[in-house]
Amino acid sequence: MAESTHSNCKSLLGSLSDYVDGDLSEELCREIEKHIAECEDCRIVVNTTRKTIDLVHVSNLSQTDLPEEVRDRLFKRLNLAAYLKPLPK
């Protein structure tokens, strides 16, 4: 990491999650932006962290459906078989 700003790199790391989530005050955002304009390593870390989270969101990893047979067994186990409605196609 760049010599002159090295001491800022560690403190940036602590705010990284809040920064990429947009949960940081404007003042702190400006400080980070100033730092990453001068420190290439930190700029890469910020950009690739943001990209990593973007990829997680757009990869639809949360979209796995519940298999139908798992749903059937769950309803039986809960004595809810009478309420098992066909899934919408």
């Binding site: 560690k10 790391l13 390593d41 870390v45 950009n47 690739t48 943001r50 990209k51 990869s59």
Partner: peptide
């Protein structure tokens, strides 16, 4: 947990990052 990899891969094309292989790497 300090970063040790400083490769700027964020600008790689989306169709590579979101390819089957890319998703497997993420998984």
């Amino acid at each position: 947990f300090s970063p040790s990899q400083f490769v700027d891969w964020g600008a790689l094309p989306e169709d590579l990052l979101l390819s089957v292989e890319g998703k497997q790497a993420l998984d």
